[in-house]
Write a protein that binds this DNA or RNA. Structure first.
Length: 316
RNA sequence: AGGGGAUUGGUCAAGUGGUAUGAUAGGGGUCUCCAAAACCUUUGGCGGGGGUUCGAUUCCCUCAUCCCCUG
């Protein structure tokens, strides 16, 4: 059976994905699926740098504004919703374009990683989390060493979150997560794809980030967060832990000045961008599109991407 | 102009007669159910020049720069 076509357009935050994605979608008759862990939430527009209706230029967008801030969102949910959206797109004879900066989500979809063997077990997670707090991260790590030495070696003891996940996996499936991951890692993508990573030199990127944060403030980020706060959304919600939201919330709660909050948003966004780049460097089969190499000419970058799509017979 | 004080990595601070500590920023990395999360790791430095001393970042002199006070 012929593999279905799929285009990924990603890159660090603030690099200019949104703009490029519209140009690309219009050129190929594509529909966009957002791979973004924050833009799924309604009312979180400014801080998540969500695309505005009028910017879409008629290009259909999926997985934007589909959840209430109180709802949980994670890879598995993303994978499920994205696959559903893709079915619809294929049925319309269109090309799906994944756009967004969450590398993990892209990976889950592109390689169709299997998460379904175990279901989330909040009680067990909580129990293990308490254990870690009371007995120490080392003690928890030791538990993992007993059942899955390989995973224990790979995961640092301080990384409690992942130690817990590994233990949970073993408890629920009787299988070692290290082995499971190894198998999944071998997987070949079920899609005929092109994975573009839009990037810029670090200095420029950081400047753009700083400027964009200032712009968000001008656009009313504080009011947006105040609105969310008034609606009863609190900082323990995953949605409210997004960049820009947790810091402004802290300010509104009187725990820091606005200036400090802005400083932190900029800094943490820069850190985030750095981590994203690290992720994409490690990802297999990515095609880097360095803006500098194209002299920041959008048309040249678009032409290059279209060329790749034709060569790979994603476009005919 | 006179008097006083300061000068330690990009920034902010600690410290010692045997060449230095931390925070933070910056760099690199891990990641297969909270990923805008969580975690690991790391490059940089004693303003310039003299002197005392076995040895000066530390003490003395001088120059530079900055700050304060007086005029």
């Amino acid at each position: 059976m012929q593999k279905k076509p799929l285009v990924v357009l990603t890159g660090p935050t603030a690099v200019g994905k949104t703009k490029a994605s519209i140009d690309l979608a219009k050129a190929v008759g594509g529909e966009i699926i957002s791979a973004d862990s924050m833009q799924v939430y309604r009312y979180m527009d400014i801080g998540s740098a969500k695309i505005r209706k009028e910017e879409m230029c008629g290009v259909p967008h999926h997985l934007i504004d589909v959840l209430e801030p109180r709802e949980e969102f994670h890879v598995v949910k993303f994978q499920k919703l994205a696959k559903e959206a893709m079915e619809g797109i294929y049925s319309r004879g269109h090309l799906p374009i994944i756009v967004g900066g969450t590398g993990f989500y892209i990976q889950a979809l592109l390689y169709d990683i299997d998460f379904t063997e175990s279901t989330q077990d909040d009680a067990l997670r909580k129990k293990l989390s308490v254990y870690a707090k009371e007995e120490g991260a080392e003690a928890l790590h030791e538990k993992l060493r007993l059942v899955d030495p390989k995973a224990a070696e790979d995961i640092h003891a301080n990384n409690v979150k992942r130690v817990i996940r590994a233990l949970e996996f073993y408890a629920q499936t009787g299988e070692r997560i290290s082995e499971h991951n190894e198998t999944e890692r071998q997987k070949e993508s079920p899609y005929q794809f092109a994975y573009f990573v839009l990037n810029d030199n670090r200095e420029r990127l950081y400047e753009r980030i700083n400027r964009r944060v200032d712009q968000m403030l001008d656009d009313g980020l504080v009011e947006e967060v105040r609105f969310l706060k008034e609606r009863g959304y609190t900082k323990d919600l995953v949605s409210m832990q997004g960049l820009g939201y947790k810091e402004i919330l802290e300010y509104l709660d009187g725990d820091c000045t606005l200036e400090e909050a802005v400083y932190k948003i900029k800094r943490d966004t820069r850190h985030f961008a750095k981590r994203q780049i690290t992720w994409f460097k490690r990802e297999r089969e990515v095609i880097w599109v360095e803006k500098e190499a194209y002299h920041y000419e959008e048309q040249l970058m678009l032409d290059y991407m279209l060329d790749v799509l034709r060569k790979r017979q994603i476009l005919t």
